[in-house]
């Protein structure tokens, strides 16, 4: 990633995310009340976060690659099942992944 790309992503993301927040304070209440829109909007974060889990954990460029990251994700999943707090989930995944990376 070039420095200018990084600045463009930062700038555009910040402007658009703030714009969307501000929109909520200016649009009339009825506009987003359509049940279909609300149902889809409730599911969008779930779909995107799910896709991000696999895109970050199981993919390199455009290939599905199972490597040390998968071990980290498996431990994160186990930690979530055990109701571990967020920092523990992330840290245990990182430690496991790093161990597998070095031992492999």
């Amino acid at each position: 990633m070039s420095t200018s790309t990084a600045w463009i992503v930062l700038g555009a993301t910040s402007v658009l995310c703030f714009g969307v927040k501000l929109l909520g304070y200016y649009i009339p209440e009825g506009w987003l009340a359509h049940p279909r829109l609300q149902r889809v909007n409730a599911l969008v974060p779930i779909s995107l976060l799910s896709a991000l889990v696999v895109a970050e954990g199981l993919v390199v460029k455009t290939h599905v690659v199972l490597d040390h990251r998968l071990a980290g994700l498996a431990v994160a999943l186990a930690a979530l099942f055990a109701k571990a707090p967020f920092p523990v989930v992330v840290a245990s995944a990182a430690i496991t992944s790093a161990l597998v990376y070095h031992l492999h």
Binding site: L73, A76, L77, V90, A91, A94, S97
Partner: peptide, 21 residues
């Protein structure tokens, strides 16, 4: 990769997703 940061990111997404399910 050496410090497991490449696995920390998908784990963070999983952690953000989990309470929504």
């Amino acid at each position: 990769a050496s410090w497991g940061l490449d696995a920390a990111v998908p784990a963070a997404f999983l952690g953000l997703l989990w309470p929504r399910l």
